[in-house]
Design a protein around this nucleic acid. Sequence first.
DNA 1: TTCCATTGAATGGGTGATCCATTTAATAAT
DNA 2: ATTATTAAATGGATCACCCATTCAATGGAA
Lengths: 252, 252
Amino acid sequence: MAFRPIHTRRAFEEICDRIREQLALGVLKPGDKLPPERDLAQQLGVSRNVLREALRSLEMAGVLRLQKGVKGGAFVQQGDTSRMNVVMRDMLSLGTISIRELSEARVQVLDLVVRLACANARQSDFEALQANVERTELFTREGRLLERVECAREFYKLLAIACGNKVIAMITDAVTEIHMRFVYAKVASSGVAMARLVERRKQFLAALRERNAAAAARLMRGHLGAVQKMLEQDPGAMSLQIALAEMKPGMK
Amino acid sequence: MAFRPIHTRRAFEEICDRIREQLALGVLKPGDKLPPERDLAQQLGVSRNVLREALRSLEMAGVLRLQKGVKGGAFVQQGDTSRMNVVMRDMLSLGTISIRELSEARVQVLDLVVRLACANARQSDFEALQANVERTELFTREGRLLERVECAREFYKLLAIACGNKVIAMITDAVTEIHMRFVYAKVASSGVAMARLVERRKQFLAALRERNAAAAARLMRGHLGAVQKMLEQDPGAMSLQIALAEMKPGMK
DNA sequence: TTCCATTGAATGGGTGATCCATTTAATAAT
DNA sequence: ATTATTAAATGGATCACCCATTCAATGGAA
């Protein structure tokens, strides 16, 4: 018989829960401002320090933004879809999930994404992807490989958006972000880069425009396999630790 | 031209990042204990209050557990896969995603899960699912409907585990948790319940055992559709707010 | 009047000292 | 040997400050 550890209820947890409850009930909405720390602390009957522990946690969770100055305060945010990426990173760092599992999941999720995008993509989605491929082409011509990696990151984001479902998009982003760090680190360290990337993108986009899910999915699977192979080429011997720890600016 | 808001760097963020960096680098591993707050604060050159803001945030993120008493301290945890559920809940509360998107995503994810489970499930997975169906049968016979809902929640968890990929399992859990709250609230308020649930489960499990992905996926789709229809039956007029705010014990 | 510099209040950011509550190990009493 | 007591370590929480930033109000100069 195993007992789950008791979680002694602490003030800051209670506060977080109450604020989240107000959010769930719709009493608090994005854009709203909470009372000043000093007031709210008094209302809740806790010290300002404890209240701040709660506010900080909610800020880290992407629920609040704290802003200084008169007219500042704690503002309810629009949901930050990148919080899921942080969860994924933590799981990897802690060894709860493995790179292999993440890659596998990514392949499966992208397969789904491609099929959904084929079914649901709008003209504007195609145009955004088209523009992305053109930028990729530019960077390829000019040998700006690291910028091309950023382009690739954006490509998957646009593809996920083309599904027309923000939940799927969020999930896709979460399983893609770490992977792109690896690619970035690989390209930065070894200078190698995917051959015929633009060609592949164009083929893929053509299949997508024809809404040919089977062909698009096949092309995507093939591409992912090729990228995987490139990553596994020894030189550089990518390390999980390095890729995770190296926080490139703008890579939140 | 739009500028991203500058994020003034605050001490607690810096601390969180440094600790996460140590995790990513493998310097800190699950089970490790951080120095006592008083020591660590001094090492980092910050006040204990600020350090605590950081530790609290990391605790909320499921990275640390803080334990009182001599021999207590801040311990690095195994990754908590339920953190993704919290993100999903926040996104819903904040209106970043909709129930409709979540349901759609769930249908798609479960389709994938069923196929993967067909391919990868082991004997032990079948046995766990079998045992779950038997409990479902018991609760059905005895009219313990709310416990049966808990059983259903477990069913999807087991199915996700049968995929053999923890990332997929985590995602599945995240898209399933909210849904099961709705079902719970519906059953609790109206007393209605899915007809022929056990029969459906048995059929599904049989298809899974035969590793007949097409049949299993078809059965799952049918079942999800039926459940959706049940939820949409007016009486009770389920409210997102209520389902989200009502925190049933054990539903973390 | 219009514009710009000054100023002051509101608010989050951060500090240090202090006490409480819980947990555990060492110690003492039975 | 067993049990009760005690003391130390550690997180939980409070209080009283002070600093830095922001912005609106004020007031003087053009």
